[in-house]
Write a protein that binds this DNA or RNA. Structure first.
Lengths: 240, 240
DNA sequence: TCTAAAAACTGATAAATATCAATTTTATTT
DNA sequence: AAATAAAATTGATATTTATCAGTTTTTAGA
């Protein structure tokens, strides 16, 4: 369906991937804009790296992975976006192709705002461009942090960080606070390690009483210890 | 010295870290702003991660590394900025601390624009905020690409990519096109590998006729082969 | 509810990369 | 130019992580 809807810039946010950062919502402004609300099923592709962008996406409900695929087909998840996050706008602002792909990892409801309409509100609203500048600056801090995590932390630490981040995402989505419902592949692609390695580390965490699993689902029981593992080198902890 | 200077937004640019991307300069606009021009010697710290930002820095000459240091003192270089690039503005826009540190890796001449003056021109100039939005969107693509490089590429490929990026930077700085003047530590911190490993890979590249060294300096002679190594898996190349 | 198919898990092994302990080279200072 | 300090290099080894080849478990569809 196509409709003219509210673009609640006071509500959307770049939810932090880092444990340390969060931005408060200070502005109170709403803009009217054309949008189409669409349903996506788990596994549906929202946009693909390299495609010419036709508009931006505002996630109303659900969880989306943003990722890059290398020439051997290996996927690296860059970011996991949830409710009230805006995706796909970088390409339009940069006047370039999408730098990454987006796929629903849960059933989603997503508003699509065509490029022209987005640019129109952007040009007419100083507060929107300010908000975007702030958002992207925050994003810079998160991505920068992620680069150092990927290069300086061990697989075990990265898994711990990944679980903490995902727990926050799922907490925002559902009432059930400590359940993460994600495939082992996605989890390993987020931590940037081999799937088998991820499974072994999860097993280790189970033994330590940090989490338990029910089928594919992961329930975190000791977030404190997880945080400890995420920030101390395993040289110190001697986990094996 | 403190003076009122020109802020040439038609000239500054986010020089790409990626081989593939570049943004053309389309706007032609110059803004008048208060600035202090300072000299920095090689090794001088420009700003430190975690510090409250007091303004932004416009590099007029020289090369600057932006990096994060982990708790064991290991440094990861996030980006190398050169002439006509703007650094330190994310923290001000995000209303947060600096997310990374900046240090001169060559003697530099850098204009400092105090926070208030920067925000003033930003609020008075639509073209500046548009330019920043575009710049940051491009930055997003580069950082995103770097994450996939760090997680999906081998040490050898990352060194090749690092050398290609640095060659571009140094080409912009000086007439001598193919000479890179950087310490092995900085190089390894950029590629995200151990120094000893970097040295061995450089030696390998020497044997392959890709480069030669004179003391600390690196001269690239076969950029084509370097590009090949950077984009093909070494499974295919069988370099060892 | 049964049954493929897909995903998760396991153990063994290989490959990549880091670390350690020197030695040599380069740069800096007097 | 010599002396000193810093940086680069080397070889040996340890550690981490990936890969391979199965087996088991889970999920989704008939």
């Amino acid at each position: 369906m196509s409709l003219s809807g509210i673009f609640p810039i006071d509500q959307w946010n770049f939810k932090s991937q880092s444990i340390l950062k969060s931005i408060p919502t200070e502005d109170h402004d709403r803009l009217c804009v054309n949008m189409t609300v669409e349903s996506y099923n788990k596994g549906d592709v929202i946009f693909k790296e390299g495609a010419v962008p036709s508009g931006i996406f505002y996630i109303q409900k659900g969880i989306v992975k943003k990722y890059k695929v290398d020439r051997d087909g290996r996927e690296q998840i860059i970011y996991v976006a949830g409710s009230s996050e805006l995706i796909g706008y970088h390409a339009i602002l940069a006047e370039d192709r999408y730098p990454d792909s987006a796929t629903a990892i849960e059933d989603c409801i997503i508003a699509f705002i065509p490029k022209e309409d987005f640019l129109e509100v952007l040009h007419s609203s100083v507060i929107l461009s300010q908000r975007l500048l702030k958002n992207m600056s925050h994003e810079y801090a998160v991505l920068t942090n992620n680069i150092s995590v990927f290069t300086q932390r061990t697989a075990r630490e990265r898994v711990a960080i990944t679980l903490i981040v995902l727990r926050e995402k799922y907490k925002n989505e559902e009432a059930n606070e400590d359940t993460i419902n994600i495939s082992r592949s996605d989890l390993s692609n987020m931590a940037g390690i081999a799937k088998e390695n991820l499974v072994r580390i999860l097993k280790e965490f189970k033994t330590l009483g940090i989490l338990y699993t029910e089928g594919r689902k992961i329930m975190i029981t000791d977030i404190r210890m997880l945080a400890e593992i995420s920030s101390y080198s395993n040289k110190t902890l001697k986990l094996r």
